[in-house]
């Protein structure tokens, strides 16, 4: 179903013509935070920044060789894998195996959540606790978003999950609040400028990554709406009414009404004239037929008279003989 936004003129009672712009085209002009491509670009840049900056901090701690590699693995493994994910989805391979990559991401975050829980047990820290909460919320959000478009959603009946009732916007809000809180705590407790920059990058990464998942959830909602055609018709009708009311002012309506009235009057007059002409023609034909009937009657009487005269002559001739 195509949605049209029209600056319309009424040429006929039935047909509406004019300069119409496809609403779908108009809807592509989105804000930057609703554009998934822009969000993925931001996340990619943030991840790259986290990796480079954290390695610059590690290099200052005089680690060499295997210890440096181990430090890279411990601190940045998650960011490396997610950066790889966002790079792969730009290519055909990533797009083809998008569901598989999402499943791997869910498993990865499940593992990260588990390890952060174990880290809290070993050394409790408010920052670690906040990151544990953020990882749980991200895991739930990814689980209930990325698996929605797959066959596993129906196979395991995941729509019955209690966390499915939480809206995608709520997940994003929770991640936003927690990551902001994490940033504030780190800003207060931070003793180095490098720590401030790194925590800023990490907090922004959490927010934009959650936004990416939220946008995918919105996209899946839009697909479901178009398939069932529910909940969309009222919005479309309202948009059409609003657009028509905005485009057509009161003066224009009067002009349109007057023009249609004139057209109707012209049509009626024309048909009336035609009917009159037809009636006149019919009357003439009837008169002609009547005249022909009168002539024929006169001819009949004349013929009859002639016949009578003939009969008289024959009888007179027969009598004299």
């Amino acid at each position: 179903m195509k949605l049209f936004y029209c600056d319309c003129k009424v040429y006929d009672i039935i047909i509406i013509e004019g300069d119409c712009m496809n609403l779908e085209e108009k809807n592509e002009v989105k804000a930057w935070y609703d554009n998934p491509r822009f969000i993925t670009n931001i996340v990619t840049v943030l991840l790259f920044g986290i990796l480079v900056y954290s390695q610059s901090i590690s290099s200052r701690s005089n680690l060499v060789g295997w210890d440096l590699f181990r430090n890279i693995m411990n601190v940045n493994l998650l960011y490396v894998i997610i950066l790889l994910y966002f790079v792969l989805i730009r290519f055909k391979v990533g797009k083809k195996y998008f569901n598989y990559l999402n499943l791997f991401l869910i498993l990865l975050y499940f593992f990260v959540t588990m390890t952060s829980f174990l880290s809290i047990i070993s050394s409790f820290n408010i920052v670690l606790f906040l990151r544990f909460l953020i990882s749980i919320i991200l895991l739930l959000q990814m689980f209930h978003t990325f698996l929605r478009g797959t066959i596993s959603w129906k196979e395991f009946r995941l729509e019955r999950s209690p966390f499915n009732e939480i809206k995608a916007g709520s997940y994003f809000t929770m991640v936003f609040v927690l990551s902001t809180l994490d940033l504030v705590i780190n800003l207060i407790t931070s003793g180095e400028f490098s720590g401030v920059v790194l925590t800023l990058f990490i907090s922004l990464y959490y927010i934009f990554f959650s936004r990416y998942v939220y946008l995918y959830s919105n996209y899946l909602d839009s697909i479901d709406k178009d398939k069932d055609n529910k909940g969309n018709f009222d919005e479309v009708r309202e948009k059409i009414v609003v657009n028509i009311n905005e485009s057509i002012n009161g003066e224009k309506i009067d002009k349109i009404v007057d023009s249609t009235k004139d057209k109707i009057d012209d049509f009626v007059d024309n048909t009336r004239d035609k009917l009159d002409d037809m009636i006149d023609n019919m009357a003439e034909k009837i008169e002609e037929t009547e005249k022909t009937e009168e002539v024929s009657d006169e001819e009949v009487t004349v013929v009859k008279k002639k016949k009578k005269k003939k009969k008289k002559k024959t009888t007179d001739n027969g009598g004299e003989e």
Binding site: R70, N74, L77, T115, L118, S123, T189, G191
Partner: peptide, 26 residues
């Protein structure tokens, strides 16, 4: 083992002299 022999990562907030024990992914 990753949880038992957890690593001491340099703290980015309190300075590189202090460390936080975290899960040893490596």
């Amino acid at each position: 083992l990753g949880n038992s022999y957890n690593t001491c990562t340099p703290s980015i907030t309190y300075g590189s002299e202090n460390c936080i024990s975290q899960f040893d992914f490596s």
